[in-house]
Design a protein around this nucleic acid. Structure first.
Length: 592
RNA sequence: GGGGGCGUAGAACAGUCUGGAGUGUUCGCCGGCCUGUCAAGCCGGAGGUCGCGGGUUCAAAUCCCGUCGUCCCCGCCA
């Protein structure tokens, strides 16, 4: 018999009754009745109940929660009336004949059950204990099963899994790069990849045809519930592909993962919405289509209004949009909070209206509206007594984004029981910065839908770019890539990157494009975000084994941390005086 | 960079608005009792820098200012 274990707990069932087995694991619970004691032994698969006679095995009195033990005993059917239907192994128990404590445990910093919400910093400081909790252990397993299912699906489709470097050249575009100083070339730095973008394109040029990778990516931007500085993407790319090929491959991966974790078959193809329509109807490029509350254009109703705010918005080329937020009672404080939120979302303000029982509108602006306007408004928004109507008058994008944000705040389901996958297509090639300059909206290697139209009117040009969205969460994005240097330069021209600087920054890549580059395209989606939604979690951290806090700290290892002066010297690095001074002061305070 | 929430025993909380002795609940911990529990039960006990610093006050967990930590959001995130 093996030293520690003959079976995992969940392998024990009625078919093994009468057999001597050995289980190993942690003491999840001890229920000591004096003359008899019950132990819940937890291992990597589940839990089994062990029955101990203290007269025979007095060590049971020493056991505390989370001690590791190995126990030998006979599997027996549980007595009548003591079967536990909540346990996989609830029909049987193990009558202990030998019990060995393998290692003790200190009293725990928090209880390892799912019944209370422990402070997250404490959970991260003791993540190795946190991960023993059923929910976290389930998330770890779910993630592994999801990636395994994705690998199987892509392998079946003939994809090649290729690893690309994580120490690469920094390019100033996009997110802030995480930098790694070079010792052998002092003063030079590697960057950690924001995505394997250019390498996967090089693989297409290299003839790989169908590539995928479960790739760690790094973006040095601020944290959110669904954003960490390092995260994992399913990255793929294919040659001689059009948009439909990319989307079919991504759908195959997403369907496989969803089948694995949810046991449901998502119909394909996923619904498609153009970027423009997504903005018009939902006020966002990542709409949650599980609920309605769609945005409606009210501009024509107020074309000749005497209400100054609306009139000036229209006169300035803006628009008036509204949503029907449905049946609710808006207190003055709640109404004020909505207006504040609208301002936070970038709006100049927000008009709210409560439809009263008699059909009249209670609103700070009601007195400025004509009878025709009030009627038209209610009709357009399908308003009935008890509804709350929200109206934004602003620039096109601002009005829509404000209402899109409020729509999410007010209507979004709290959980992810329902799954609504969606493609958002036909993104614009470029976005206008605050100062009016154009920047790419996807990345600079994205193929425009029409090169001539792009050169004529960059502001309105569309790209062969698309996002996949699940329940209002942007899972990822992709595009058909530019595969000839001339088109690439035309895009650079619009971005204000002249030939010389393009040559300096991307010359190696532009040269590669000249050696028979196949038309190609690809996509990447966040594994963390996908598993987060499928596991019904509100935060990406719940599906990452060792995430960081919002300030980028790992409370377990205390990373990041200062390094020895000698390490800096080797790298040819000297801290800026004000930084060194602040560090020294912090160190002095810590030493007090 | 900005807005907001939270910080009280090892853990989760109540107490803070309206200042009056570190008061309380549940879990855990320590000791005792207990042969069918599965969040076992019963009895007893220990455990507190009310995040930290300053201010107001006869008196501060409570009011004010600052600061640190953490979470959510805006900006940022090709």
């Amino acid at each position: 018999m093996s030293r520690y274990r003959t079976h995992f707990t969940t392998e024990l069932g009625p078919d093994l009754v009468g057999q001597r087995v050995r289980v190993a694991g942690w003491v999840a619970r001890r229920r000591d009745h004096g003359g008899i004691a019950f132990l819940d032994i937890r291992d990597g698969k589940g839990i089994v109940q062990v029955v101990v006679d203290p007269a025979r095995l007095p060590q049971v009195d020493d056991l505390r929660m989370e001690y590791t033990v190995t126990i030998e005993g006979e599997v027996t059917a549980r007595p009548e009336g003591t079967v536990n239907p909540d346990l996989v192994t609830g029909e049987i128990e193990v009558q202990a004949s030998h019990l060995e404590i393998l290692s003790p445990s200190e009293p725990l910093p928090f209880m390892l059950d799912d019944r209370t919400d422990i402070d997250e910093r404490l959970r991260l400081q003791y993540r190795y204990l946190d991960l023993r909790r059923p929910r976290m252990a389930a998330n770890l397993r779910a993630r592994s099963r999801a990636t395994a299912a994705i690998r199987r699906a892509l392998d079946d489709l003939g994809f090649l899994e290729v690893e690309t470097p994580t120490l690469i050249r920094s390019t100033p575009e996009g997110a802030r790069d995480m930098l790694v100083p070079s010792r052998l070339r002092q003063g030079s730095f590697y960057a950690l990849p924001q995505s394997p973008q250019l390498f996967k394109q090089l693989l297409m040029i290299a003839g790989v045809e169908r590539y995928f990778q479960i790739a760690r990516c790094y973006r040095d931007e601020d944290f959110r519930a669904d954003r960490q500085v390092e995260f994992t993407q399913l990255d793929l790319e294919g040659s001689f592909w059009e948009a439909e090929d990319v989307q079919a491959a991504i759908e195959a991966a997403l369907v496989a993962a969803t089948r694995e974790l949810r046991g449901v078959e998502i119909p394909t193809p996923f619904p498609r919405l153009s970027w423009h329509e997504a903005m018009e109807r939902y006020g966002t490029d990542k709409p949650d289509i599980r609920f309605g509350m769609e945005i409606v254009d009210l501009s024509d109703i107020f074309a000749s209004t005497e209400f100054g705010v609306f009139a000036s918005a229209l006169a300035n080329g803006g628009t008036i949009r509204g949503i029907n937020a449905g049946q609710r009672t808006l207190s003055r404080a709640e109404a004020d909070a909505l207006v504040e939120r609208a301002k936070q979302l970038g709006g100049k303000g927000l008009v709210w209206m409560q439809v009263e029982a008699d059909g009249s509108l209670r609103s700070p602006v009601a007195k400025f509206l004509s009878e025709t306007e009030a009627t038209g408004l209610k009709e357009r928004l399908g308003a009935v007594a008890g509804d709350v109507l929200l109206i934004a008058a602003d620039r096109w994008k601002t009005a829509l984004e404000v209402l899109g944000g409020l729509r999410n705040d007010l209507g979004r389901p709290k959980n992810h029981d329902e799954l609504a996958f969606l493609w958002v297509t036909d993104f614009p090639m470029f976005e206008e910065d605050d100062d009016g300059t154009l920047t790419f909206s996807h990345h600079p290697f994205t193929m425009p839908q029409d090169v001539e139209a792009m050169q004529r009117s960059p502001q309105t040009a569309l790209a062969h770019a698309y996002d996949v969205v699940l329940n209002g969460v942007e899972l990822g994005s992709g595009s058909i890539r530019i595969h000839d240097p001339e088109t690439q330069q035309k895009v650079f021209d619009i971005l204000g990157i002249d030939r010389e600087s393009a040559e300096r920054r991307f010359g190696w890549f532009l040269e590669a494009l000249r050696y028979g580059t196949p038309p190609h395209g690809g996509f990447a989606f966040g594994i963390d975000r996908l598993v987060m939604v499928l596991q019904n979690e509100a935060s990406i951290r719940e599906v990452m084994p060792f995430p960081k806090t919002q300030t980028g700290v790992d409370p377990l290892t205390s990373a990041p941390a200062p390094v020895d002066e000698a390490q800096l010297v080797e790298l040819g690095i000297q801290l800026r005086p004000e930084v060194a001074a602040a560090l020294a002061q912090a160190e002095a305070q810590a030493g007090e």
